[in-house]
Design a protein around this nucleic acid. Structure first.
Lengths: 325, 325
DNA sequence: CTGAAAGCGCTAACAC
DNA sequence: GTGTTAGCGCTTTCAG
C-alpha cells in the first residue's frame, strides 16, 4: 500500500503541496508549464486522490447510504439500478447495505452509514422495525432520509411509494370486470403499511361485489401452503399482493394441476419479471422499482438542496395484461 | 451536519482529546470514573466516530470493492450475499459497483475503488475487458484482486470459478442414468468460454449414449422459440445450460401443455432459484454463487494476510433432485 | 504565479 | 491516569 500523495509529487518536483493540488485541479492561477509537469508526473506515478482525506477536509463526501432488506429481489434490484444511474450521473457514490429484514442488522447498518458520514439515506424498513429513533437521529444531524417501498406510517417522514391503494384497486376492478365471484386474496405481513393500504383498497373495491378469502403470508412457502389449503374452497381467482407471494401461489396451482385461466384466474401486483415466467403470462398491475428509484433520487436531491418539506410521493401503476384472467 | 467529535466531548468534560479517545476504547490506563463520564456523554450526544478520519489516520479502512456486471442476477446476487455475510462477520465494509458489462464503466469503478483506498477487490470482468492494466496497478500497490466467475485467461491472477465442465458432465450423466434417449440441449452464446466448456463436457459424456439436438440461444425469448420448434422432434428431455435459458424453455413446455416429467423431462444448470419456482421443481446441477462467494472471501483473506500465491479455485457442483426427471 | 500555515477528526507514541 | 504532540492527505485562506 504505497500510494502516491501530493506531498510525494511536490517533493519530486520541488514545488509546494498546494501548488500541486491546484495544478491537478486545473486552477487558473497555475502556469501551464507547471500544470504540465505536475500532471505528467501524477500520471506516471498513477496518482489517485485519497477520498478519505478529501472527505475529512471538505466534510462532504457525496455518499448516499441505501438500506434494503435484500438485493436479491426484482423490485429492489431495479430500484438500486435507478439510484445507481443517477448517482453516477450526479457524481455521488453509494453504500449498499442489506438488512436481511432483521431490525438489529438494520441498526448496525444505520450506524455504519453514520460513521461513514453519508449525506443521505435511502431506507426500506424491515417488517419488524418499530423504533425509528436511529432514523430520527440522522434527521437531527441534517442527514435526509428518504424511505421507499416499506415506509413508516407516520407522515412526518419523506416517503416514496408505489401507489399501493391504487394498484390494489386496479387489480380488484380487473377481477370484477371479468365477473369473478370468489377470490383468494393473498397479502403480506399485516404489520406493514404496504399491506394495510393494499388490503383496505382491495376490500373497498371488492365490497359487495366479490366474495373474498383473505390470507396473510410472510413468504413464498407460506403462500404455497395457504394456497394449497384454500384452493379447496374453490375460488375462481387468486390475487397476489407481491411477486414473492405469486411464486408460492403459482406452485400450489401447478401442483393442483389447474389450468390458467380456465380453471382459475390469477392476477398480481408485480414488477414484471415473475409474471412473464409463466405461460400464459400472468396479468399484473405494474409497480416499477426503476421508476420508484428515479423518484426517490429526485426527492433526495431536493432534501440535500435544503428542502425541509416532508412529503409522500407516489408512482402510478397500470395494468399489464397477460393471459391469466 | 453537526456531528459530535472527540474534541467537543473533551471540551465539555474538561479532558484532553486523547483521554476521551482512550476512554471510548476502554483503554486500561483510564480510570473507571472517567470512562463512565465519557461514555455517558458520548451516548447522550450520540457520538459516532468519523470513519474517514480513522481511515486516514490508520491508513487501513477494512473496505473491499466488488465489481460485478449487474446485481440483478441470481448468481451474482447470491455471490454478493455470501461476501456480505463474511464482511459483516469479519468487520469489513463493501463497496458494490456495477459495470453494466461496459469496460469504460469498469475503469471508472476501479478508479473509485482506488480513491477510496479499498484493501481488496472482487472483480467479475466484462465480456469486452481485454486490458487488465488497471487491475495490475492495484496489484502493484499491494491491493489484492480476486477475480470470480468471468475471469482473465492468464494464470497469474487469483481466480475463483464454478466447475463448468463438471456441472455439464453431471447433468449428462443424470440424463443417461434415467435411460433417456433423445435430449434437446440448449446452450448459450457459442463464443463464450463458459458455453464451450459446458458443451464439450456434455458432448463427451453423452457421446454414443444419447441422441442430442443442440441449439444455441442468446436469451430467454430465443430459448422459448427454439424449444417450441424443436419440441416437434419429440425429445424426451430438455437440458438447459443456464437459468435464463430454463425460463424460456419452461414457457414453451407450459405452452405446449406437456406434463413434467411424464411427457418430458427437464434438467438445468442453475443457481437454484428459478428451478424451485415450478411444480414439480426442476432438477438441476447446482453452481452456487453463494459458495463461490464464500470461497472468494477466504481467498481474499489469505491475500490480505500476505499470501502471494496466485491460484485458480473451483467450487464443486452437485445434483439437486427436483421432480422433473 | 507560488508557498506557508491551519485544520478536518482521529490515533499513538512520548511525556509527566 | 492524563495531557502534549505529531501527523494521516488534502483544501483553502492569506501572504507575498
Amino acid at each position: 500500500m504505497n500510494n502516491t500523495t501530493l506531498k510525494k509529487i511536490s517533493e519530486m518536483l520541488g514545488l509546494s503541496i498546494s501548488t500541486v493540488s491546484r495544478a491537478l485541479k486545473d486552477h487558473p492561477d497555475i502556469s501551464d508549464k507547471t500544470k504540465q509537469r505536475v500532471t505528467e508526473l501524477a500520471q506516471a506515478l498513477d496518482y489517485e486522490p485519497n477520498a478519505n482525506a478529501i472527505n475529512l477536509r471538505t466534510s462532504k463526501n457525496n455518499l448516499f447510504g441505501l438500506i434494503v432488506p435484500s438485493i436479491s429481489n426484482f423490485f429492489y434490484d431495479s430500484f438500486i439500478t435507478a439510484i445507481e444511474e443517477e448517482c453516477r450521473k450526479n457524481n455521488y457514490s453509494m453504500m449498499i447495505l442489506q438488512s436481511g429484514d432483521d431490525a438489529a442488522v438494520e441498526q448496525e447498518n444505520i450506524k455504519l452509514c453514520r460513521q461513514n458520514r453519508v449525506c443521505g439515506l435511502f431506507a426500506c424498513i424491515t417488517s419488524q422495525t418499530v423504533n425509528l429513533d436511529a432514523f430520527n437521529k440522522l434527521g437531527n444531524i441534517e442527514v435526509p432520509v428518504v424511505f421507499f417501498d416499506k415506509v413508516p406510517d407516520d407522515s412526518s417522514y419523506n416517503r416514496v411509494c408505489v401507489a399501493d391503494a391504487l394498484s390494489a384497486t386496479i387489480a380488484a376492478n380487473a377481477i370484477i370486470e371479468k365477473k369473478k365471484k370468489k377470490v383468494l386474496a393473498l397479502f403480506g405481513n399485516k404489520n406493514l403499511s404496504i399491506t394495510k393500504k393494499r388490503l383496505l383498497a382491495f376490500d373497498i373495491a371488492t365490497d359487495n361485489k366479490i366474495k373474498s378469502l383473505v390470507a396473510y403470508v410472510n413468504n413464498a412457502e407460506e403462500a404455497e401452503q395457504v394456497t394449497s389449503k384454500l384452493l379447496k374452497e374453490k375460488p375462481d381467482t387468486v390475487f397476489c399482493m407481491s411477486d414473492e407471494i405469486l411464486t408460492g401461489a403459482m406452485k400450489a396451482i401447478q401442483k393442483e394441476g389447474l389450468k390458467i385461466p380456465a380453471d382459475i384466474a390469477v392476477i398480481a401486483i408485480s414488477n414484471g419479471f415473475i409474471p412473464k415466467l409463466y405461460f400464459p403470462e400472468i396479468t399484473y398491475v405494474e409497480t416499477s422499482g426503476y421508476k420508484l428509484g428515479k423518484l426517490a433520487f429526485s426527492s433526495m436531491i431536493a432534501c440535500v438542496a435544503g428542502s425541509n418539506f416532508m412529503q409522500e410521493l407516489t408512482i402510478e401503476s397500470s395494468l399489464v395484461a397477460g393471459g391469466s384472467i
